[in-house]
Design a protein around this nucleic acid. Structure first.
Length: 171
DNA sequence: GCCAACGTTGGC
DNA sequence: GCCAACGTTGGC
């Protein structure tokens, strides 16, 4: 049961964060100061609420969306819990929301820190091959458009297991 | 670039 | 509070 890579077994939760690599990729996170960046720009209430539940040290898959090879490319962790999303308050930001104010920020972000890249891309296509079995109910496969998603421990472990084997052939 | 799925907005 | 119109997401 105890996995030696997890110092606080059982106390952390798992997530999946989507980003368009043209906007912000795993390489950008790796190149950031302290390999840490605010995860700003979330403008969906469901995603925001999930993000508010994130705790320091929780882990998330970094997913590249809307690109040639959509899939999971790395792992990051929560380095700061939810605080007001500054891009919503900045009139010059593309993500500016006139309804957000300092008193009532409406949108939140967390800071995420790079943990590591995956040894290989675990593609959406590959994940889909397990949608009826090990990854049944995974939000990515059923609620495809949500940009911040919960991942169960079982799903988390299974995806990391996929990382260590060659991609399966299509049925 | 197309288009399906889904979220948000706003008139009533 | 319903629902049509509209905007966005994101795979393909």
């Amino acid at each position: 049961m105890a996995r030696k890579e997890q110092p606080v077994e059982g106390s952390e939760s798992f997530y999946l964060l989507k980003s368009e690599p043209d906007e912000f990729s795993i390489d950008d996170l790796a190149a950031a100061k302290d390999q840490t960046e605010p995860w700003d720009g979330v403008r969906n209430y469901q995603a925001r609420n999930i993000m508010k539940g994130m705790r320091l040290g929780d882990r998330a898959f970094f997913y590249h969306s809307n690109c040639k090879q959509p899939g999971i490319v790395g792992i990051c962790e929560v380095a700061r819990e939810a605080y007001p999303d500054s891009s919503a308050l900045d009139p010059d930001s593309k993500k500016y929301d006139p309804k957000a104010t300092a008193e009532d920020p409406r949108w939140y972000m967390v800071d995420v820190k790079m943990v590591r890249r995956l040894a290989r891309l675990v593609s959406l296509q590959e994940l889909k091959q397990h949608s009826e079995a090990a990854l049944q109910g995974m939000a990515l496969l059923s609620k495809g458009r949500l940009s911040v998603q919960p991942v169960t421990q079982q799903q988390w472990d299974f995806v990391l297991g996929l990382e260590d084997r060659p991609p399966e052939q299509e049925a």
